[in-house]
C-alpha cells in the first residue's frame, strides 16, 4: 500500500545542497503529491519552504550517497513513513547509481533521465539517441523510481508559507561492501576556458586528431579559445581542461561556436547560458540546433578551411 507522497533523495556535495535538486523537487510538485526530502545532516543551502516534510539521516554525505547504504536508508524510510508512490533522484553520477541499485533491490520500475511529464497520460519522457527521439514511459507498479534531468523541472518549485516538519531517520551503518575513502580533485590545467569571451568548440565530428592543428590555427586567427566535447578529451585529442559539460567546465562566453558537436544534454548543460550559440553540423536534425541561436548545416572541416583563408586574408 502506498502512503501517498513523493520521496526526493537529495544530492549533497561538500556540505552543499546541489542546485539540480530543484529539478527533482519540481517534478515532485508536478506529480501532485506531498514532497518529502531525504538528506544527510549538516547540509547548507536547503530552502525548507520548498518541501512538505524533511527526513534527516545521521550519516555523512560520503556514506549517504552510496548505493548499498541507500538501500538500507530507504528500507528504514519505507517502514517509518510508509511506501512512497515515487522515489526521485537527480540524474547524476551518484543519483543514477543509487537509483539503479535501489530499483534492482526493490524490484521496482525505474525510468532514468526524465525530462518531461505528461499529466494526462501519466507518462514520463525519456531521451533516446542523444535527444533525437523521446520515449514516453508508463510505470506498471509502485513505488516508481525516477532520475531527473538537470534543468527540466525547476520552474515548478513552489514555496510553502510554513516550515515543514523535520524528522530523523536515525543512524545508518556504513556498508561493508563499499566504503567512501576521499574526494579527489582533477588537476587543473594552464588554460581556463571559463574566462574566455569567445569559445571555438570542437566535437567528435571533426574526424581525427590530425584536424586539431587547423582548428588551433583558426582559433588563433579569430582570437578565440579552443574548447571541446568529451569524446575529444577521451580520445586524447585535447587535454581535459578544455572540456565543456557536466563532467567538464561550465562556460558562459559571449559567443560559443560549436563545430561538429551533436548536443547531448551533458554537453548542453555546460554551455546553454552562453549569450550567443552558433552551431555548425552536417546533420540538420542534430539536437544542438534546438539550443543554438544560429545554425549552419555544413561540413565543418571545409567551412573551417574557408574561414581560415578569409580571416587570414583580410
Amino acid at each position: 500500500m502506498s502512503a501517498g507522497y513523493v520521496l526526493v533523495v537529495a544530492e549533497v556535495r561538500r556540505g552543499l545542497f546541489e542546485e539540480r535538486n530543484l529539478d527533482t523537487i519540481g517534478l515532485g510538485r508536478e506529480l501532485g503529491l506531498p514532497v518529502s526530502l531525504l538528506l544527510p545532516e549538516n547540509v547548507n543551502g536547503v530552502d525548507e519552504l520548498l518541501l512538505d516534510r524533511v527526513l534527516k539521516v545521521s550519516a555523512d554525505e560520503g556514506t549517504f550517497l552510496n548505493p548499498l547504504v541507500m538501500v538500507s536508508i530507504l528500507v528504514k524510510v519505507f517502514e517509518s513513513q510508509g511506501q512512497p508512490d515515487f522515489v526521485l533522484f537527480t540524474h547524476s553520477s551518484s543519483g543514477a547509481e543509487c537509483a539503479a541499485y535501489a530499483a534492482g533491490h526493490f524490484s521496482a520500475p525505474l525510468v532514468t533521465d526524465v525530462s518531461g511529464f505528461d499529466q494526462s497520460t501519466g507518462t514520463f519522457f525519456k531521451s533516446y539517441y542523444s535527444d533525437k527521439v523521446f520515449a514516453q514511459f508508463k510505470s506498471t507498479s509502485s513505488p516508481t523510481f525516477l532520475t531527473v534531468r538537470s534543468g527540466s523541472f525547476r520552474e515548478n518549485v513552489t514555496r510553502n508559507q510554513a516550515a515543514p516538519a523535520v524528522e530523523s531517520v536515525g543512524d545508518i551503518a556504513p556498508a561493508e561492501g563499499r566504503t567512501f575513502l576521499e574526494y579527489v580533485e582533477e588537476a587543473g590545467g594552464a588554460v581556463d576556458i571559463t574566462k574566455a569571451e569567445f569559445l571555438l568548440s570542437v566535437g567528435r565530428g571533426i574526424g581525427s586528431k590530425d584536424e586539431i592543428p587547423r582548428y588551433e590555427e583558426l582559433a588563433r586567427a579569430m582570437r578565440a579559445v579552443l574548447s571541446c566535447s568529451r569524446p575529444v578529451v577521451d580520445k586524447l585529442w585535447l587535454p581535459k581542461e578544455r572540456q565543456v559539460g557536466t563532467s567538464g567546465k561550465t562556460v558562459k562566453p559571449k559567443v560559443y561556436l560549436a563545430m561538429a558537436i551533436s548536443g547531448a544534454f551533458q554537453h548542453i548543460a555546460g554551455m546553454k547560458d552562453a549569450d550567443c550559440i552558433i552551431a555548425i553540423n552536417k546533420d540538420p536534425e542534430a539536437p544542438i540546433f534546438q539550443y543554438a541561436h544560429f545554425g549552419i548545416v555544413a561540413d565543418v572541416n571545409k567551412l573551417r578551411d574557408k574561414l581560415i583563408e578569409t580571416v587570414k586574408g583580410s
Binding site: K132, V133, F134, A135, T140, P287, A292, H293
Partner: peptide
C-alpha cells in the same frame, strides 16, 4: 516494469536561425 506507450520527436524549442 515500465512500458513505452509512444515514441515522439523532441519538443521543438524556438530553434536556431
Amino acid at each position: 516494469l515500465i512500458e513505452v506507450t509512444k515514441w515522439a520527436y523532441p519538443p521543438k524549442k524556438e530553434g536556431a536561425a
